[in-house]
């Protein structure tokens, strides 16, 4: 019965009482979290705050000790095809013998169903996704020959090709150059403007205000969540990062 009843369907992501523990120490403690649809949300926090763990738990890749997660009211198992996931770039071996387009087509494997192979339609959609990231010229390149920024774009294209209403990205801007960062952010903002929900694990506090409209500040527990304007305050930043926070991150004037 629980599986069929919608729970908090008005939230793109709803997390309640979520606790995740690796061994003895909790990585996430009693997380309550709501992200409304149609926002571009940054998840920020210091190293070890549990940012990646939070999205992995939300996606069911990590088993929580307690709590539950809903996407648009559904458990994650029912939303598999409607969530685009971009893992950290370093989580895979880029020497794998394959091309950029082939990786993007992997985003369509689920919708193909068992035993079916991707065909011309998948190829077209993959090319379109690559083109949105300005990567169409690299479609037949071996992925080992791509630069870090290009690899990140391929990963994003793989999530894009699913045409999912919710996108979850784990540090998509880590180690990419300025031009790739601009391309990725422009695309994510466009997706947000189309009404999709974009959730990004982000490590650069200096750009949070300009890139995002919603944010979750995390340090094992939730420090603050809500519109960036309300959350990005010196008190919250100090609570999340401690006193030794770099000056640049503190807003000059508190709202």
């Amino acid at each position: 019965m629980h599986e069929d009843t919608l729970h908090e369907p008005d939230q793109a992501l709803h997390v309640e009482d979520l606790t995740v523990s690796y061994g003895v120490t909790p990585a996430l403690w009693d997380i309550d979290l709501d992200i409304p649809p149609g926002v571009m949300c940054a998840i920020v926090g210091p190293n070890g705050a549990g940012k990646s763990t939070l999205i992995k738990a939300a996606l069911g890749l990590v088993r929580p000790v307690a709590g539950h997660v809903r996407f648009l009211g559904h458990p994650v198992g029912r939303m598999r095809g409607r969530i685009g996931y971009v893992p950290q770039r370093h989580s895979v071996d880029w020497d794998f013998p394959t091309t950029a387009r082939d990786v993007v087509e992997m985003g369509l494997y689920r919708s193909l169903g068992w035993f079916r192979r991707p065909g011309a339609a998948a190829r077209t959609r993959a090319m379109e996704a690559l083109a949105q990231l300005d990567m169409q010229d690299y479609a037949d390149r071996q992925i080992s020959q791509l630069s870090g920024g290009q690899q990140q774009r391929v990963f994003l294209a793989r999530a894009l090709v699913q045409d999912a209403p919710i996108l979850i990205l784990d540090e998509p801007l880590a180690g990419v150059d300025a031009s790739t960062e601009a391309v990725i952010i422009a695309l994510l903002q466009r997706l947000r403007d189309e009404g999709r929900t974009v959730i990004v694990v982000h490590h650069d506090l200096t750009t949070v205000q300009s890139y995002f409209d919603w944010m979750v500040m995390l340090n094992v527990r939730i420090i603050a969540q809500g519109p960036v304007k309300q959350v990005y305050t010196p008190e919250n930043l100090r609570a999340a990062y401690g006193r030794q926070l770099a000056m640049i991150a503190i807003p000059a004037t508190a709202p």
Binding site: L59, G60, R80, T98, V103, R110, R158
Partner: peptide, 22 residues
């Protein structure tokens, strides 16, 4: 042959495959 694309996906990126529900 039958599970070609599934094996390929799992070999390349198991986390993504899991997130996709495989």
């Amino acid at each position: 042959l039958g599970l070609w694309k599934e094996f390929k996906l799992v070999s390349f990126d198991a986390d993504f495959a899991r997130a996709q529900g495989f």
